[in-house]
């Protein structure tokens, strides 16, 4: 079917498959419509349709708190159409869809599931095809038998790859979480839609980087470190990473982070912020290349960065309260311009 998307600035005609999310159809056809999480949480992709033209597949999505249903407002990421229709999208389309790469649907299979901590697992998806993505991007993942897509940032980075790596924190009662942690997901088929997200790293910007992550938000930061290390970024520029977790038993990727520190030859510092416990005496000797501090990660960032922000580009990823607290620090203390702050909030 055909969806006519009207914005104040431009109109787009989008071919949409039966059952396809309207946002995904638009993005893959190159219409750079506003969105952020693409999975129902943030409300950024709201639009309007005439009564009965679109159907929401998740009425209680957190992002629906931004909607006025009586005006026909709906979330493009959670809705499908069943016949040709016209929708209105408020706000300005972005300059490009997602890091300049059009997202597409790819099939794959889950492999190499392994536990990183008591409640964080890593897994890979071996794709049937290949995907190019920018460091910091994510994909929407769907499994047979579970309604809806979940967003996961890639941990790895290559210009083009047939394998995507992810981390997931166990969420009691979460459908995908139960499927992953309690089921037999090994080799099960998955569908991914991506790449998505505009919080991307570009080595040609040539600036210091400051990365602040809470919990599994470290995923996209690992991708940025992989790309920046490969691009020789730390030969010329500094990098600082602040990784917030509750306690020592929640830390993961120590070896990978230590390895990035070594390869950066003194220009990369990684600090693990423990929100709920004092730094044990053994931490420093166990992980000599990492720094440790006690406190919420945005407060540790504030204390350690002090007046050393310079003109860094900052990447922030984690749960919304952690991201919002960090954005305040970057704006008020770091005086960073909005164009130098890139973030991923996931609920």
């Amino acid at each position: 079917m055909k969806i006519t998307v009207r914005t104040k600035h431009q109109n787009y005609t989008v071919a949409c498959n039966e059952g396809e999310r309207i946002l995904y159809a638009a993005l893959r056809s190159g219409a750079p419509l506003p969105y952020e999480c693409a999975t129902g949480t943030c409300g950024t992709c709201k639009a309007r349709a005439r009564p009965g033209d679109v159907r929401s597949h998740w009425q209680s999505a957190p992002g629906s708190s931004y909607l006025k249903p009586e005006r026909g407002e709906f979330l493009m990421c959670q809705s499908t159409a069943h016949a040709d229709c016209e929708i209105l999208v408020p706000g300005k389309p972005a300059a490009e869809v997602a890091g300049g790469l059009l997202p597409e649907y790819l099939k794959g299979a889950l492999c190499d599931l392994r536990m990183l901590t008591h409640d964080v697992a890593a897994f890979d998806v071996k794709l049937d095809g290949t995907m190019a993505f920018r460091a910091g991007q994510f994909v929407a993942v769907r499994t047979a038998g579970l309604e809806g897509y979940r967003a996961y940032s890639m941990v790895n980075h290559d210009e083009r790859t047939d394998r995507l790596s992810f981390v997931v924190k166990r969420l009691p009662g979460g459908g995908f979480s139960n499927w992953l942690f309690d089921g037999s997901p090994q080799n099960q088929p998955l569908e991914v839609f991506g790449p998505l997200g505009r919080a991307t790293y570009d080595p040609s910007e040539g600036k210091d980087i400051l990365c602040i992550a809470g919990g599994s938000g470290i995923a996209g930061i690992m991708s940025i470190l992989a790309h920046s290390t490969r691009a020789g970024h730390f030969e010329q520029h500094r990098g600082r990473v602040f990784f917030g977790v509750r306690g020592m038993r929640d830390v993961f990727f120590h070896e990978e982070l230590s390895d990035f520190v070594t390869r950066a030859g003194g220009n990369l510092e990684v600090t693990i912020a423990l929100s709920d416990e004092e730094v044990p005496a053994s931490a420093q000797s166990d992980y000599p290349r990492l720094g440790f501090a006690t406190g919420m990660v945005h407060l540790v960032t504030s204390e350690r960065m002090s007046d050393q922000y310079g003109d860094a580009v900052a990447f922030v990823a984690g749960p919304p309260p952690m991201v919002d607290g960090t954005l305040r620090v970057l704006i008020v203390e770091g005086r960073l311009p909005a164009s130098s702050i890139r973030y991923d909030k996931f609920g």
Binding site: E36, T44, V323, D324, L327, R328, I331, V332, R335, A338, I341
Partner: peptide, 17 residues
Amino acid sequence: SGVCSGGLLTCTKHLWQ
């Protein structure tokens, strides 16, 4: 959601200023 700094107001939802 608003943050004031240097005469600028920023909304932390989408960094509108």
